[in-house]
Design a protein around this nucleic acid. Structure first.
Length: 567
RNA sequence: CGGGGCGUAGCGCAGCCCGGUAGCGCGCCUGCUUUGGGAGCAGGAUGUCGGAGGUUCGAAUCCUCUCGCCCCGACCA
């Protein structure tokens, strides 16, 4: 392609709206433009990268026997009501109506559609297994879209769905997909890590996320430096070590005056103790309007996802101050489990091992010291309700867990029969008995993967594309305008195209500096600089974007050198 | 939804506090020169100052409302 014939509006300056590297560079390199918050147009250069990523995904999906389909973006409310996700998905679902006022939504994911397709067409175990995938625009009305393609309201996603006749086959489908994902992200040149994950709104039993490690990542993961264990903190299990000594006698409960102490830190300061001797009582409102209490050790953070999973609900919110006042009779900051009526009490497992701890007294400006469960109040449920953190004991070795930030570029779920049961997706086995298909679902954020690649591959001059997803392999830069330069440029351009190298020729009437800067910004892995200076010696410069290393080659051998470097 | 910030030429910004005929840099157009890391000279075009209402002789500037965008948080495959 020639630059003068391609729409590549590069920007000299950083757009004010972009905060993170990938967003900034995509805008500056003329790959994308914003239409509204979280909604972008893909320009020719950006689309080329997207197509490269898609192609890698297609090849690996086809390789494991998945078949490409294209499902509608617009889907009728009825299907979503069958699975109850019409209500459950909440505000994130982009809803609309047709001229007859029938409800529709723009698909945020396609379990309903694909399961409906399956139940209409598949009758026999002989038709299994089947895995379908598509690459398509998805819609999610995110509460806060941000960072360009990283979190959009409209974005391109590859989603796949597997249907199997038994657990064993389903596990194989899941594993095949897991392996395919490993190959896909390796081929796209990403440094990533597969971690255990929460199943969220999609639901299901087991799940892994593929995380690209990057500091701007929105996900926090914990990993064990000495084993392969890694998990999203949303999900990471916490193991409690048994208490060092059980001998400490129970002291008697005592109310102490603690004025002006709203936080754990303030209470500890006043009572001259540390946060691990305090138990905070968090009050939550359930979607049904009832209040539950969760007891967490003072130095720990509650993990609302774990609590929600235990309760089997989705919309858990911290109780507002009015609710706290009416349930405890005290302002926020003084809630405690003792004397709470008609409130289910959940306790993190760490609390179970504590003795003689501090809790709020449900009375303004007062706490209890030497509180003990079973004696002073009853815990209804003990469980793992806190957030894992760096320094926690690894569940799989003697090591301490460490944390890192990641960008979620892929997610695989074992769904089981969650959707096939609700929607009646059944088949007959060899004995003529009816079973629900066992499903898996698998997603990849295409644009997000491209953005993640930039986060991991750039310098202060611009993007440094990994070869497999580069929009062009070679950027041809004639830097002077002599006839000889133009002639050699034409010859090399034709020769590279003939060799199926994807080449961008900067044929603009610009000065060398402008061309160099744009080439570095756009980030093709190789640059070929053709100028009178070099041609006097009979050579052109072959420059690697990544290292800056320049090889002087004679024009006749350029194609050979390029092919070597690209292989 | 809570907190913070921002909407002025295609892009980046100044002007606003203290009201008086809208500016700078880059880009864009024309011509000449120049051409190995964002050229020089000369000439030129470009604005409902996000929108609506109000105060005022007069509003980019002050007041009210509203829309949009960005960041933090809550939230989220």
């Amino acid at each position: 392609m020639r630059t003068t014939q391609m729409f590549i509006p590069t920007l000299r300056e950083d757009p004010g709206e972009a905060e993170i590297v990938s967003h900034r560079l995509m805008l500056r390199a003329g790959m994308i433009r914003k239409v509204a918050a979280g909604i972008y147009s893909y320009l020719p250069l950006g689309l080329r990268v997207i197509r490269k990523v898609e192609q890698i995904i297609r090849e690996e999906m086809n390789q494991i026997g998945a078949q490409e389909v294209l499902l509608p973006m617009l889907s009728p409310a009825e299907l979503w009501k069958e699975t109850e996700r019409w209500d459950f998905y909440g505000k994130e679902l982009m809803r609309c109506q047709d001229r007859h006022d029938r409800d529709f939504c723009l698909g945020p994911t396609h379990e309903e559609i694909v399961t409906d397709l399956f139940r209409r067409e598949v009758r026999s175990y002989r038709q299994l297994p089947v895995t379908l995938y598509q690459i398509q625009t998805k819609f999610r009305d995110e509460i806060r879209p941000r960072f360009g393609l990283m979190r959009g309201r409209e974005f391109i996603m590859k989603d796949a769905y597997s249907f199997d006749q038994n657990e064993e086959d389903a596990q194989k489908s899941y594993n095949d997909m897991y392996q395919a994902y490993q190959r896909i992200f390796t081929r796209t040149g990403l440094h990533f890590r597969a971690v255990q994950a929460d199943t969220g709104l999609i639901g299901g039993s087991s799940s892994h996320e593929f995380m690209v490690l990057a500091n701007i990542g929105e996900e926090l993961i914990v990993f064990d430096p000495e084993s392969s264990y890694a998990a999203n903190v949303e999900r990471a299990e916490v193991v409690t070590s048994p208490p060092a000594s059980q001998d400490e006698p129970y002291h008697s409960l005592k109310k102490v005056n603690t004025p002006q102490t709203k936080t754990v830190t303030e209470v500890c300061q006043l009572l001259n103790t540390t946060a691990d001797h305090l138990v905070k009582t968090l009050l939550y409102t359930t979607p049904q309007g009832s209040i539950i209490a969760v007891l967490i050790r003072g130095d720990h953070q509650a993990n609302e996802i774990k609590i929600q999973r235990h309760l089997g609900i989705h919309d858990l919110t911290l109780a507002d101050s009015d609710s706290v006042q009416s349930v405890t009779g005290a302002p926020t900051g003084f809630s405690g489990p003792i004397g709470l009526k008609n409130v289910q009490i959940l306790a993190d497992q760490a609390v179970q091992h504590l003795k003689n701890y501090i809790v709020g007294a449900n009375e303004a400006d007062n706490h209890y010291i030497n509180a003990n469960h079973s004696r002073d109040f009853n815990i209804d449920v003990v469980g793992d309700f806190r957030q894992a953190e760096a320094g926690d004991q690894s569940p799989h070795s003697q090591a301490k867990l460490e944390t890192a930030r990641g960008i979620e570029v892929g997610h695989v779920f074992m769904l089981g029969t969650k959707y096939s049961e609700k929607m009646g997706a059944k088949f007959l086995d060899a004995q003529g008995e009816e079973h629900c298909a066992i499903m898996g679902c698998y997603g990849i954020g295409v644009g997000r993967a491209a953005a993640a690649a930039i986060e991991q591959n750039h310098d202060d001059r611009g993007i440094i594309w990994p070869i497999p997803i580069a929009p062009f392999h070679v950027h041809l830069l004639p830097v002077t305008t002599s006839e000889q330069v133009l002639e050699v440029t034409q010859t090399l351009y034709a020769a590279l195209e003939h060799a199926n190298v994807e080449v961008l020729l900067d044929d603009r009437n610009e000065r060398a500096g402008v061309k160099f800067n744009d080439a570095d910004l756009i980030g093709a892995p190789l640059q070929v600089i053709i100028g009178d200076k070099g041609l006097k010696q009979g050579t052109v410069d072959l420059k690697e974007r990544k290292t800056g290393e320049i090889t002087k080659v004679i024009p006749e051998e350029l194609v050979k050198h390029v092919l070597e470097k690209l292989s």
